[in-house]
């Protein structure tokens, strides 16, 4: 079974990530079992997929959190995709899903990103890191990197009060 980092530990990854369909999103066949579907597929097959409880959805880097919006809450899992680790849009998407759309389920990073980004991802609300089969060597270092910082200046998902409000008290 492939592995990922979830809440600071290496665990089995029992979700399947469905690739973007080549053809019409409405016609794409969604497999059974726990599956993370592309946003477009969710939108195109909304009513049928809404029946299932084992569906998660993933947002590509150019899809913003408000395209899922309040519906995020109904999913057990939402994933944000990194086409390249230097493309930082997913950091905003993750934060918005948590802070603006009150998503409390598993928020997973997928695609090409690095263990070195684990701490910032955690601070933006991501609690699961799926590096994929090619980058399993990032799993162990990511556990360490999650703890790179334990104190922060700004507000973030894990620390809603900026340092200055905590300093003052």
């Amino acid at each position: 079974m492939p592995k990922l980092v979830k809440d600071g530990a290496i665990v089995d990854n029992d979700w399947t990530l469905m690739a973007k369909p080549e053809g019409e999103a409405a016609e794409a066949k969604v497999p059974g079992g726990k599956v993370i579907v592309p946003l477009k597929v969710w939108q195109a097959q909304h009513d049928a997929l809404a029946e299932r409880s084992d569906i998660g959805v993933w947002l590509d880097t150019d899809e913003t959190a408000d395209e899922l919006g309040d519906e995020a809450k109904r999913f057990p899992l939402v994933a944000v995709h990194f086409p390249a680790f230097a493309d930082g849009r997913a950091f905003s998407t993750a934060r918005l899903l948590r802070e603006r759309f009150d998503f409390t389920g598993e928020l997973r990073a997928v695609g090409y990103f690095l263990a070195e980004q684990a701490c910032y991802l955690r601070r933006c609300g991501v609690n699961a890191l799926d590096f994929g089969p090619e980058r399993e060597h990032h799993l162990e270092p990511a556990i360490e990197a999650l703890k790179d910082f334990t104190e922060y200046y700004q507000t973030s998902v894990d620390q809603p009060l900026p340092l200055f409000r905590r300093r003052a008290s």
Binding site: F85, G88, Y152, Y153, Q154, S156, F164
Partner: peptide, 13 residues
């Protein structure tokens, strides 16, 4: 400076 230092959302602009 403090706000922008290690801002988790804006490190990969």
């Amino acid at each position: 400076r403090q706000w922008s230092t290690f801002h988790p959302e804006f490190a990969f602009l």
